[in-house]
Amino acid sequence: MKYTEKISKKLNELLIKNYDAEKGYLNAANSIESPRLKLFFEKCATERSEFAKELRTEILRFGEEPQASGSFKGIVHRNWMTLKSLFSSNDEEVILEEAMKGEKASLEEYNEILKDETLPSSTESLLIKQKNALKEAINTERVHEELVS
């Protein structure tokens, strides 16, 4: 496997995670009543959409083909979030918990890819910027979780 294919494969994994996160946040925004949380989830969805655009551009820069949509696992997770919220007494708390799980999984994936010491500096900078935004979202979600519980 060529070096560009190897990096693009890793970036495509992140791309899929961001597609899934965007859809998950939009689903969450449509599932709750709180205007503050709705706005927060919409902001996160927009941010993940932007991450996906940046990753697609980076993959194309390597002359490789970006993935076109999310994963089956992401669909299952969103459906589980919806089902769980239907049977929960506090929908917003459950949805926030699920969003936190997804963000932590994404953060781990970014950390794993950033261990590759052969990443071009432009790719590394992009991934660090996105990783830092994820950390910020996790911290914000923790604050919202405290307010909901």
Rank of each mutant, 00 (worst) to 15 (best):
K17Q: 12
E65D: 09
L134I: 15
K104C: 04
K9S: 15
T82A: 12
S106I: 08
E65S: 10
N111G: 01
L15D: 00
K38E: 12
R36K: 15
R61E: 07
H144I: 02
E108A: 10
N132P: 00
H144G: 02
S85G: 02
K23S: 07
L37R: 08
L11S: 02
F87T: 11
A137G: 09
P66E: 00
K23G: 07
V76W: 07
L83Q: 10
A68G: 08
R61A: 09
D91I: 05
Y25G: 01
Y3K: 13
F41W: 05
K129D: 10
E146A: 11
S85N: 05
D116S: 08
H77V: 11
Y3L: 08
K84R: 14
R56H: 04
L26S: 03
I16Q: 07
Y3M: 10
K53I: 05
L114I: 09
T57Y: 07
I95R: 02
S31A: 15
E141M: 14
I7V: 14
K43G: 06
L147H: 10
L14A: 04
K135G: 05
H77K: 15
I95P: 01
L26N: 11
K84S: 13
G74R: 03
Q130K: 00
L114K: 06
E103C: 00
E146I: 11
L147G: 06
F51R: 04
D116F: 07
V94D: 09
N90H: 12
G24P: 01
K115S: 06
L127A: 02
Y25I: 00
P35V: 08
A21N: 09
E117C: 01
T118S: 12
N18D: 12
E112S: 15
R61M: 04
S85C: 02
R142K: 15
I128H: 07
P120W: 03
K84T: 07
E65K: 14
S89H: 11
E146W: 12
P35A: 08
I138R: 03
A52M: 00
F62V: 01
K10L: 12
E92H: 03
